[in-house]
Design a protein around this nucleic acid. Sequence first.
DNA 1: TATTGTTATACTCTATAACTATA
DNA 2: TATAGTTATAGAGTATAACAATA
Lengths: 149, 149
Amino acid sequence: MSRERNDIDYTMLNSLVGYRLRRAQLAYFENFTATCTEQGVTPGLFGILAIVYHNPGLTQTAVAQAIETDRSAMVAAVDKLEKLGLIERRPAENDRRSYALFLTGHGITFTENLHRKVLKHEAHFEEVMKDGEKDWLLDLLTRIIDLDR
Amino acid sequence: MSRERNDIDYTMLNSLVGYRLRRAQLAYFENFTATCTEQGVTPGLFGILAIVYHNPGLTQTAVAQAIETDRSAMVAAVDKLEKLGLIERRPAENDRRSYALFLTGHGITFTENLHRKVLKHEAHFEEVMKDGEKDWLLDLLTRIIDLDR
DNA sequence: TATTGTTATACTCTATAACTATA
DNA sequence: TATAGTTATAGAGTATAACAATA
């Protein structure tokens, strides 16, 4: 049985994997968000950088689908990344409706540095994991994510 | 290595436990939210019901702390639950500033039924878990949640 | 002085609809 | 006709500040 920091009985919520996933995710994201904020971006913007880093030339809509958000939300996000000098909109070669997204030189080093910083902060949480547990967790989470795809 | 449903390379995001936690949580919550919506509440309202179910008589502020939200957000939430006939505000016995929260008779059966429905829907995700993996996951998530408390 | 419930407010995220220019 | 980027907009969720009543 788990102990709570206060005298509250969480029995019903604790029985739900979904609720515990949410609270663990919030704990992780507190850290993640702080690391991103220090560098002047948000977790959402980092997600875009990480996708474009590995997939240069994607259109805005393709990136939106990759991070499961609406393409209308991409406009302001890419605007911000452009203003920060991290990303570039280039005309797509064979479709004049769309842009191809690329990281700038600065964007590449920025993204790599931020990724390293986030990994370093994540290491804090690995203190509570035994040998092999992180890989097992990543694998199980992947199975959950892919279940209904 | 995990396969994605599209041709996108997620290497950087996949390396972060935080991002995978978030996506798994979103997958779970899609299901959770749908189950709650069918019964006319939100996951947030269910959280309040679940806390008051096991801890009758808590003040609004105490419930707010239990679910880690601001007490200002409790007002509209408890208003809704009151209009649904699920919860009651009673004057606190020894502090005329605060209310003690209690579920109504209907609130109790409603909460128990909804809890059962959510558990049933969660069982879908257990298809991807081997024997003992669910308990392991709950335990690991608890360790993560409690790390910085 | 400090705290409870409350209100007003603001900010982020997310989603929808409609417009334009292209396809 | 369908799609890409864009704009406007609206809703949910969350956080802050300030107020009246009470401690």
